[in-house]
Design a protein around this nucleic acid. Sequence first.
RNA 1: GCCACCGUAGCUCAGAGGCAGAGCAGCGGUUUCGUAAACCGCAGGCCGUCGGUUCAAAUCCGACCGGUGGCUCCA
Length: 578
Amino acid sequence: MSDSLSSDLTLLRQRMRHSASHVMAGAVLELFPEAKLGIGPPTEDGFYYDFLVSRPFTPEDLQAIEERMRKAVGLSLPFQRRVLSRGEAGEQFADQPFKLEILRDIPPEEPITTYRHGSFEDLCEGPHVATTANIAAFKLLSVAGAYWRGDERKPMLQRVYGTAFEAQEALDGYLHKLEEAKRRDHRLLGRELGLFLMDPVAPASPFFLPKGATVYNLLIQYVRELYTRYGYQEVITPQVFASELWKRSGHYENYRDLMFFTYADDREYGIKPMNCPGHALLYASQVRSYRELPVRFADFGRLHRFERSGVLHGLTRVRSFSQDDAHIFCTPAQIHQETRRFIEMLQETYKLFGFQQVRMALSLRPEKRMGSDDVWDRAEAALRSVLDEAGLPYEPKPGEGAFYGPKVDFFVPDALDREWQLGTIQLDFSLPERFDLEYVAEDGSRQRPVVLHRAMLGSLDRFLGVLIEHYGGAFPAWLAPVQAVIIPIADRHVTYARTVEARLKAEGLRVQVDDGQDRMNAKIRQAQLQKVPFMLVIGDREAASQGVAVRLRSGESPGTMPLAEATALVLRAAASRV
RNA sequence: GCCACCGUAGCUCAGAGGCAGAGCAGCGGUUUCGUAAACCGCAGGCCGUCGGUUCAAAUCCGACCGGUGGCUCCA
């Protein structure tokens, strides 16, 4: 599909979905005449409309609304645009307080327009499809609470979500994708594959079972290899710091609600939510020369953040986690080079995991900030030039930066085309000030370094959750917690199976013998369900020939081969990291 | 934190005022099998917790804890 075609389709869908939201609002008003209307825009995947109603919608209500919508679509009602004066509009929406509020916010020079289909007329810029019949295929999906204007101090409305497509097949495809996403849910796979569990005694804090811990540690091992190549030094820092530290770093003032505290000897301690203050102490522990910069401290320390209960989700939003975290202390002139090297490392890594398209967002100076304009100018320019040189598209986001510095966030689509934010690199002018960090420059003067907070995978817990969904639980051989299951057909084959096991283990492979009483068929089924990459079946023939019959989880069977050959096959797959 | 919904065996779920159920998993036995589920049996429960209504509560009501989908948040 060409770019112009795909953008035409995007526009068509936007219109259709916007129109569908109007049709939905019309249907809701027919069924709930007292409903007050919020807004009803199209979204990335569909549309929604917000309503203030006396009672929340039930699934039955959704059905009834959808039926009314189908009627309206069947009637091929034209969408008619109308330009109103402010007075007319005020009258038209006299009993719709939210619409009046929107009306007040429309700049005086802009025209007021409405769109009408049938007897329903809504304040709206448009555009819309020609008639309701153009809404080819739609479905209402869910209902949830949503604050008016996204403000938690404002009333909570009922938001009905739906989606619409230009053809039934496209809608079916989308619904199928939702099903597939459900099937790959890392919370289900995490249990089925024996990777991790959660327990109410530690809400939102994962327990990694042996298999999950294996994958987790393999990720760390991979990152450590990169660190060796890219010049990072790993450090280990405390878990709990007296509150003085958090006061000094500013976390106590700005981040306290998200921290856990503990008390001992009449002293208050904060459990670390971030590694940076600890690393600042390490940096400050000795006089630093410009010759040793950049200093890159990496830390896999466990972090705890008291996330609000409503935001928690599986491994992707937890209260206890580790990051592939590192802080780079460098001169302002080194920002460019350090950022460039980081992006190189990050792209190498994302490619390895099969995340092809990296999207980047560059968050620029906010209203409230620290550091001089000169420093911001140089920092932003440094980031821009790196991104431009990398030839990667990025979206500048004015005002979105943290008060302590600009940042770049990295997003990738997974196997189901869902986008995740993984990496980030954030400049920090505040931390060096607060900890009075210095280095001795060439001319002997004391200078202030800049700190770069950076992570490629982000929270490893979250990244593991993303990977589970990305791979659907079928980890590539290098990451699979069990790389091969050895399946003896009958008890008399167990002895030889143990020999095979010993041979593979000697090569550093993670293997298991299934010596249970099940039939071979059941053992294969079990290994398939556990998504083990290799199954090595051993019966009379194999035992006699000192070979193994190889089966892959794809269902392919390369057949029987000598043990040495099978070992090499598994080793190659594990070593290639693909 | 806010709105809605949900908590019954390890897992998936049935039971909706009157004796606590099934399948899978587990355990025991029989079977020794050639590429996705052998057969028979056994065991398994403070029905999330606390309180209330009732002769009687898994079931109705309330609070709390935990989870799910959104919203907000993600210095």
